[in-house]
Design a protein around this nucleic acid. Structure first.
Lengths: 218, 218
DNA sequence: GGAAAAATTCGGATTTATACGTACGGGATA
DNA sequence: TATCCCGTACGTATAAATCCGAATTTTTCC
């Protein structure tokens, strides 16, 4: 998004901050606001009546939250760490979108990216094995780190193992075991469980979806 | 969408028909066109290199196809039966969206609904048991039939058991077994495997996500 | 700075839901 | 008529959940 549209954003929305574990809103709340993450990570999830949880997305700087909402939010949004967001009334954002075609395209591109990510996650949850899921997760994180200008192969995981498990449709024990396994195989390495260095991206890419082309390219 | 916008659609797009099992496009094809289903059912899916398949959506009359595409389609689209679609060049649709704010809202609402559906499917694939998945599937189909003005409790399944399995992240044997089980329990009944009568929607709703409220309401 | 709480990891044992393979019948199709 | 696909059924195999305990580390909080 270009600079002048960010300015438009700031004119219609306030800035809010949230402490770790604080909720921006709960599933079922009336969806009066849209959010855009400025700093920190937000975790979106749905719950079943018996407590089973599915994390649908981790939101980082630049991501919109709430674009898919109708009258009520379809998920709960928790801050994982110290989070700063822009917050604007839906009506204001919609009015602004009527005016600016650039803003419109930005919002549309954002929701389209979100839909694409969700469709990839469907494939992951429906058809991939436990280790393929963890590998895919790490690949996605390294790609995102690269896009954001990171140079090293170290990815930061602000979320807990339980969050990761609830994102990948696994248990935290399974996530732990597979991280250890990757470590033993020399694919990753880490001392701090929240900072993982990817040593062999090619191997990880192959594991992520059994793509033999990735191996040939390496 | 209001009638006058449908007219706008027809002015920029042609109509196309596809025979059963014919593909509208393949994953990776350059995404020059958007589609809108007029009649019939289209199945969207992704494949892993070894052939594992995840169906991301079944599209019925009124649904848009391809809105989430960037340069290339992120999935393959197959006609399940005799299908009629409107087809328009992306550039034309985008130009049209610049003009008509009503069309814009319609497209935006459509992609939002698609995202919502995908997020529900994430919960289903990540955290629900096999029978919960099948129950959820039947509940969604009956709700959709009601919205489209159907009165009876009979839902038509144009897709095969394999398609359903690939949509729900199961095998076709499991889908079969659970249909039989629901039949034995008197929850559904069917002679033709493609026309299923829902006898006990309350029981189905409870099975779909273990929601005790649904039982209390019944 | 220190105590308490939470998160991570490990190991293993058990369980079980569902995949996997195989088979068989029916209906559509060529 | 022969072939193929689809739906159904059944027995076995297995990946991952579940449960359990516990050591260690990290984070939180006073």
């Amino acid at each position: 998004m270009r600079r002048r549209d960010c300015a438009a954003f700031e004119s219609i929305g306030g800035v809010a901050t949230y402490a770790p574990k604080e909720s921006l809103f709960w599933e079922g709340d009336q969806a009066d606001f849209h959010y855009r993450v400025v700093r920190g990570t937000v975790c979106l999830y749905k719950l079943l009546p018996d407590g089973r949880r599915q994390v649908s997305r981790f939101c980082h700087a630049g991501d919109f939250i709430g674009l898919s909402a109708n009258a009520a939010y379809p998920y709960t949004a928790d801050a994982l760490n110290e989070v700063t967001v822009q917050r604007f009334r839906r009506a204001d954002l919609e009015a602004c979108m009527e005016e600016s075609s650039t803003l419109r395209r930005a919002v549309f591109a954002s929701i389209r990216d979100e839909l694409n990510a969700a469709q990839n996650q469907l494939l992951l949850l429906g058809r991939k094995s436990a280790s393929e899921r963890v590998a895919s997760f790490l690949v996605a994180l390294t790609e995102q780190a690269l896009r954001q200008g990171g140079e090293s192969h170290v990815v930061v995981l602000p979320m807990t193992r339980v969050d990761i498990a609830d994102y990948l449709g696994l248990t935290h024990e399974t996530v732990c075991r597979i991280f250890s396994q990757f470590k033993a195989q020399g694919i990753v390495s880490f001392a701090d469980p929240h900072e993982i260095e990817v040593c062999d991206d090619a191997a990880l890419a192959v594991l992520a979806d059994g793509d033999m082309d990735a191996r040939l390219c390496a």
